[in-house]
Design a protein around this nucleic acid. Sequence first.
DNA 1: GTTGGTATCTGTGGA
DNA 2: AGATACCAAC
Length: 759
Amino acid sequence: METPHSAYLDQLNDVQKNAVTATEGPVLVVAGPGSGKTRVLTFRIAYLIEKGIPPWQILTLTFTNKAAREMKERIGKVVGDRANQVWAGTFHSIFARILRVEADKIGYPSNFTIYDSDDTKSVITKIIKDMNLDKNTYNANAIRSRISSAKSNLITPILYAKNEELMQQDRMSKRPHLHKIYAAYTAKCKQAGAMDFDDLLYRLFELFQRNPDDVLGKYREKFKYLLVDEFQDTNQLQYAIIRKLVNYDKSDRNICVVGDDAQSIYAFRGATIQNILDFEQDFKPHGIQVFKLEQNYRSTDHIVQAANEVIMNNRRQIQKKIWSDKGGGSPISMIKAMTDSEEGKRVADTIIEQKNRMHLQNSDIAILYRTNSQSRIFEEYLRRYNVSYKIFGGLSFYQRKEIKDLIAYLRLVVNPKDEEALRRVINFPKRGIGQSSIDKVSGQAAAKGQTLWQSLPEAEVGKRAKQSINEFVDMVKKAAHKAATANAYEVAAYMAKQSGLLDLLKADNTVEGLGRIENFNALLDGIKAFVEDDTVIDVDTLPDKSLATYLQNIALLTDSDDKDKDGDYVTLMSVHAAKGLEFKSIFVVGLEEDLFPSFMSMDSLDGLDEERRLFYVAITRAEQLLTLSYANSRYRFGKMRYNEPSRFLSEIPDKHLANANKTSSRRSSSDSGGAVRSKVSGAFKKKTSSFKIDPTTFQPSPSSEIKAGQKVLHLKFGEGVVKSIDGGAANRIATIYFDGIDHPNRRIMLKFAKLQILT
DNA sequence: GTTGGTATCTGTGGA
DNA sequence: AGATACCAAC
């Protein structure tokens, strides 16, 4: 083998270069934010290829399709077309590919369906109902996540029932039958020929476990070099599979994992940073090499230092100190708003200002929030200001009803055992097969030990329903027959028409209806594009335009995957979705206790540490400008809530803040230098004292009801009398006299004001 | 079986 | 607030 000395190596610093060229044996790369992690990974792969390793012997596992695609692109720039022959993809998609080939060995059909979390939830809900359990105690979402974490920890239903700790927890939460639901759910999925997201991992593990020689041996032989991106986000199950592939006798153990414990933000779905620590131990006997990338090439010093200070508050971490030589740059700014809507306005104002003063493009700017539901207000103001924007996340394209409906028909065509799909479409559009008929057939199926689909032709139901069922079955069979020879688009177009979905959508002329038909057509266009796409993905996959292959492709897509990067827009997304991205200017909004950190995480220190890492991820997305904002009050779940500013704000030292002391609300403690420094928002607690009234009992009246002469209560200014109202209908301004404050006559925009009418 | 109205629940992140 | 589940009336 030759040792390449390509020019691209000169683009790397010393540590990066060492991490790239240490190709043999186990390697751990600890990579801080902005430290050139992707660059190291891609150059490493390019280096392997140039060294003469056949690209198809290299397996690269990522968490998002986007990361995999970008990596392939960047490798391609160095080594050309050979990049396409590297096995690079998400854990889920690579494993699904292997499972398609080997499914029969674990009792699954090769055309198995992939259940998304909605399918999973609905199966679980149905089981709970069938078992006559209380659906409030047995909360479907809670159970789904418990089952999911069991699988992620390699706990089968049988092991679950034997696990005293888990069973004890279930008894404590009054859900002693949870393990039975888990068992029933597993059986149902298997019967339906379906795998959920966790199964794609678990079933592969099972496959390897049960077929150590023929199957596992084959893939060990095939994948000589393994690379794992974002290793801190792997769960136990994923690591177990990785170990099966590379950690065995006589293995060269050519594995390279890249990760940053400080950016682990997926513990909620079973990821554990313990894997990084274990990795070091597991591969120590085999000469593990550890590289730490600490130089940050992304952000200016204020941002990097603030990030370091914040993360220091976490209890457990791999020691490292991120540094930047980009100079101080702008200090971090703060926006303190009274209401969520004021927060939206001021963020939009600041965006306009940055665009004007710093000549930023829309695409240089991103607004990051903890929960997707926060996007609405920013959307409103950006639209009002005519700033183009794009929202990522939220309801993905494939989660829309009209899309799921057609997909369900297609799923049924490919795999008639898919009961979720069958139930979804058997009576949509309405064809007179009501709930009671379905329940009847379902009971008959259970009695005979058949799937629902198998029982349909022999269903014993009323005459009209029977007739409809027969027509429905015929339609699906015809489509299935067609699918044996036709491509995905032909079947989809046929089904769209025959099912009646297309006609139903066309009949709806409302604005929403037009949107739906647009989506529906976009889906058909997408299927057409899939059929007509002639790029070869890799050597192992023959071009296959079948419906089954199409469905497999989209099941593992996420919203962020089908975005078009072109266009100049401000990006709005959750912090989770922003991982791996960077922008010149970042707004982290909604920094309030119970929101960020989320109330769901507040009961444990682990949860809080994870929120802090999330905050760390958020602020390290910024290259030059970072703006943090919070609102004292916001609407949540239909009610006005009052929140303290996030504790994370107090973890950033004043010296990194632009306007640390310029606020009316915490004037009192700023001179002590501890304004934002106190532990757990001690200083902020005083902020409530600036309210004249108790926010928790304050009930704002609709602004349309405010009239001259009324006595009103204002959250901040207290009691006042409305003197007059002027301005147009949409922009009514009230002049209100508040006794005992500076400038007692205040002009208040009713649109933004929260006023409670007293008389 | 279908329709329309009311009660109830939900509430974070995502492959 | 919005989605969904449930129930009574048609």
